[in-house]
Each structure stands twice: as structure tokens, then as C-alpha cells.
């Protein structure tokens, strides 16, 4: 008798689990224009970060929140909802009420998640507000003890020993895509391996377990400063003002550009007036010198704001690019 009871409880719990998952909020009708005009009306504005506390996305969201508060005149609360490479938080915001009090702070991985089929939606499921920061600091570094002094040295070495040089990335992640692009562009064949996240890869490069590593400058900075790593190229249009000694890949004859836009988006159906208000406030923040100091100190990036229309165009373009490269990414 008791056993039956246990089974019953277990079954009930499992059942409740699924109903819990299936529950989804219906998007509320657009807030009345009157409410939109008053927004934020001293009510707390919640920004969902789809990753844990302490990462780059969390940092950028919180830095924005800090400077947005006095401009918007309300408290800006950052909430971390992590899981499924950012999809869990995205779903939560997508299914929230479109009253302008909940927004999502995410980046290009939202699109990549759709391409690698981790999620079935991307930015089209939201009302995009603006890009707060564009990270143009993707660099390629090698161990300073290695013989490679320029990007060309590395490419030539890769050509001489196809499939031997280890390139680290997470499969299906953005740096994996960059690596595949590098292979296609130069006609080389690297051995693309998974060596963990940003900091794990630093250790792997230091120990010589991998031959090259692509990541934003800020993640590798301690090792670049200590002279353990040598930077061969930055994958941006122009050299960075924060590390001007590093040549771009383009200068060296390889037209490879990598970037990541951290953008804010609202649930579909949010009043455009609210979106305009937030976007304008974000633009104001991006021009503040103390904001620039904060982000340069922590992640070696420069402020780069994009308004609603530009962000949409950027995301549409990025999506097309990823979709076209789908076979390459899912290889």
C-alpha cells in the first residue's frame, strides 16, 4: 500500500513538472498609450540576463543598469535567469507581459542558438530596442614561445601540417564559426577542439595544449600583459584604440571580421514610445566618459551604441550570414 503511495507521488511530481514547463504566459495586449507615456512611472524596470552573475553579459547589463537608473528615474533591476545557453532567460522574457517593465539583455548567441537548433526563435520574436555595446575586440593569440610571429606564419604552418594545429572553441559557438571561416578563407585545416570556456582556454594555451585561441581581448589580457601570449591579429575593421599595436587581420590580407552585439529587447507588442525612451537613455549612457572607463577597465572594449533601426538591420544581416553558413557551423 505504501509503495503504491510512493509511486503515485512520484508520478504526480513528474506530471507537475511537465505542466510547469508547458505553462506559458499569453502576451498581453499592448499597454495603453497613456501608460506608455508615463513609463517608467517609478516602477522597477527589470532587465533579464540569461547567464549567471559574474560573466561578460552580466557585467555589461549591470553597468548599463547603473547609469540608466538616474536617467530613467526608476530602479533598474538585473535578474539572472541562466540555462540552455541563454535560451531559458530568452523564453521567460518572450513570454512576459509587454508592459515595458521586463526586457532581455542578450547578444549574437541568440541567433546562433537558433542556427544550431538549441532554440526555435531569435530576435524576430522580440521588439528590439538598441545595441548597448558592440564588442569588436576578438583577437587571435598564440603562445609567446611558439615560432609564429604573424598571422601568415600561423597559416603557413597550418598549411604545411593539415589537421595538426589545435584551434580551441566550443562546438556550435561563435568562436567555432570564426574558426571555420578562417579555415575556408585561407584554405587551411585546423584540428578544432573543445577546450572549455574562455579562462580554461587561457590555461590550455599557456600549457601548449592548444596552438591558437580566439577570444575577446579582455579575456586574454592578463597573459598578454605578462608576455605569455602573443597577439597575431584583431578581427575588426580598424585597430582598437585600447591596444593599437595589434594589427587587424584585414591589414595582413585576411578579410575576417568578428563581433558581438549586446542588445536590449522587449517582449513583442511593447509600445514603441517605451522602446524609444529606453533607446535614447542608452545612447546617453554610451556617451558618458565614466561609462567608457568602466568597460575599458573591465573588458578592454570601447562604447558602441546602435539605435533600434540599426540594431534590427545588424541582427537581420547577422542572421542571414549565420543561416548561409549553417552547414559550415553544423559540420
Amino acid at each position: 500500500m505504501r509503495k503504491i503511495g510512493i509511486i503515485l507521488i512520484t508520478v504526480m511530481l513528474i506530471a507537475s513538472l511537465f505542466t510547469g514547463c508547458a505553462a506559458s504566459g499569453n502576451p498581453a495586449p499592448a499597454a495603453s498609450t497613456e501608460a506608455a507615456a508615463k513609463w517608467p512611472d517609478k516602477k522597477p524596470f527589470q532587465i533579464i540576463v540569461p547567464f549567471k552573475t559574474g560573466g561578460d553579459t552580466d557585467f555589461h547589463a549591470r553597468t548599463y543598469a547603473k547609469y540608466l537608473e538616474p536617467i530613467l528615474g526608476t530602479s533598474v533591476v538585473v535578474v539572472n535567469v541562466d540555462g540552455a545557453n541563454g535560451s531559458a532567460g530568452s523564453i521567460q522574457v518572450r513570454d512576459s507581459k509587454a508592459d515595458g517593465y521586463t526586457a532581455l539583455f542578450f547578444h549574437d548567441s541568440m541567433l546562433m542558438n537558433k542556427v544550431v537548433e538549441v532554440s526555435d526563435f531569435a530576435h524576430e520574436a522580440f521588439d528590439v530596442a538598441a545595441t548597448g555595446i558592440m564588442d569588436n575586440s576578438y583577437i587571435l593569440a598564440v603562445n609567446a614561445k611558439s615560432p609564429y610571429k604573424t598571422l601568415e606564419d600561423l597559416i603557413n604552418a597550418a598549411k604545411a601540417t593539415p589537421g595538426k594545429l589545435n584551434y580551441a572553441s566550443s562546438i556550435g559557438g561563435y568562436t567555432y564559426y570564426v574558426g571555420r571561416q578562417l579555415e575556408e578563407l585561407t584554405g587551411t585545416d585546423f584540428n578544432i577542439v573543445d577546450a572549455g570556456g574562455g579562462t580554461d582556454r587561457n590555461a590550455a594555451l599557456l600549457a601548449g595544449k592548444i596552438d591558437t585561441n580566439v577570444n575577446p581581448y579582455g579575456i586574454m589580457k592578463p597573459y598578454i600583459d605578462s608576455g605569455d601570449f602573443r597577439v597575431l591579429a584583431v578581427f575588426s575593421e580598424n585597430r582598437s584604440d585600447l591596444f593599437p599595436e595589434v594589427p587587424t587581420a584585414k591589414e595582413q590580407g585576411y578579410n575576417l571580421i568578428a563581433h558581438r552585439a549586446y542588445f536590449l529587447s522587449f517582449p513583442k507588442g511593447t509600445d514603441p514610445k517605451i522602446i524609444d525612451k529606453v533607446s535614447a537613455a542608452m545612447e546617453q549612457v554610451s556617451k558618458m566618459p565614466e561609462y567608457a572607463t568602466d568597460i575599458a577597465k573591465a573588458y578592454s572594449v570601447e562604447p558602441a551604441y546602435m539605435n533600434t533601426a540599426d540594431t534590427k538591420a545588424y541582427l537581420d544581416g547577422a542572421m542571414k550570414e549565420f543561416e548561409a553558413a549553417k552547414d559550415m557551423i553544423l559540420k
Partner: peptide, 18 residues
């Protein structure tokens, strides 16, 4: 990981020069 985040935000990157 959170300690690392806390230090990074203060502009301190733990690593070989720490």
C-alpha cells in the same frame, strides 16, 4: 566564478601578474 566576476568588474584580472 563569481569571485572572478567581482574582481573583473573592479578592473582586476587574476592571472600571471596578479
Amino acid at each position: 566564478a563569481m569571485l572572478l566576476g567581482g574582481l573583473t568588474i573592479q578592473g582586476i584580472s587574476p592571472g600571471p601578474l596578479m
